[in-house]
Design a binder for these strands. Structure first.
Lengths: 183, 183
DNA sequence: TCTGCCATGTAAGTTGTTACATGATTAT
DNA sequence: ATAATCATGTAACAACTTACATGGCAGA
């Protein structure tokens, strides 16, 4: 259900092909919603069938034709309807935290190494967000309404990644110097 | 795949029935992994078939028999094997943030109300975590290795919820005083 | 009396993952 | 040569959601 809306939100920025959407879902859109290209193609077909998006086929030589998708009036109305509908908080499913909770079952070194891998990933994501943030803050003119929402989405990413990094530091302080390794 | 491990982690704390697991997944376990009772019963049956858990049927009067599950040696080994295997960072799927990103399409009041609802939920979860935290910090004796991991899992929850609250404040500062409502 | 708790599931449908398939073009 | 990029999908499977089903017991 929400994948459909994630696609609509993306296409509202500008029309795209399925392939391009796939890349955007790997990049900045993926910070709020992840999806594989198979899912995207499948959902686009469904959306077109429902009349929420329309496509224009662009013939190409030496490679498959492109299909450029855009949101229809109906699609936009449905998107706005969805925006006005309350939603539930996201169901947490965090494999790393789940592992961490059972971390006492293995030598703490194993857990700390895994944590370090993830810490690096979060550090990198933070950098990406900080670069994006600069695009909004560097010129001092007032941001448009649309830009404000995007800027704050990036800010949410910064808060999120920073919270992880702070937690990692805390973990190191509490269990990082443990000498007694079980097993 | 990971639901199986979430169940094993929970059962390592102490043996449970499916029903009790359901409640725990609604409560403290649910902070790291969410699952419905249907999923849990289904997965328990699978786990027992595989020999990762075993069950003891406890007859009852006037209500269905209980099945008390516990982790087998095989299950524990599999759990430890899984703990040592690296995992990927969680795929983000945040409906609220997705909506927020497209927030410019509706009157900002609509978004702010939805945000307020979620802010309250995060505030409440934070309180729950803070109460749990006290259990670990109130007596000054050194925590066991197992308790440290649990304590830090709770701390992660506190960092997570606090980051949301900080972001909400920021959103209010940036778009909370907007006079121009589209539509 | 009615709601909620206890206790277990089945069945149908949707969503998401993994593997497979094609084939020219461009960069290393 | 080889790998990566462009560009689209199908098929099988696994995971998850929603609705349904049963039925006694305890408390407001």
């Amino acid at each position: 259900m929400a994948l459909a809306h994630a696609i609509l939100v993306s296409l509202m920025d500008f029309p795209c092909t399925g392939y391009e959407l796939g890349k955007r879902f790997d990049g900045s859109v993926g910070f709020v919603w992840k999806a594989s290209h198979q899912q995207i193609y499948h959902e686009l077909a469904k959306l077109e069938f429902q009349g929420w998006v329309s496509s224009e086929t662009i013939p190409q030589e030496g490679r498959p034709d492109k299909k450029l998708y855009q949101v229809t009036e109906l699609g936009k109305n449905q998107l706005i309807k969805w925006l006005k509908t309350p939603c539930e908080p996201t169901h947490t499913k965090d494999e790393l935290l789940l592992k961490f909770r059972a971390g006492y079952l293995v030598p703490s070194q194993a857990i700390l190494e895994e944590l370090e891998r993830h810490r690096k990933a979060h550090q990198q994501k933070l950098s990406v967000y900080q670069n994006l943030e600069q695009l909004y803050t560097q010129n001092s003119q007032e941001l448009s309404q649309e830009a404000k929402f995007r800027y704050l989405t990036v800010r949410r990413g910064i808060h999120y990644e920073t919270a992880w990094l702070t937690w990692y530091d805390e973990v190191i302080r509490v269990i990082g110097d443990v000498k007694t390794n079980p097993e």
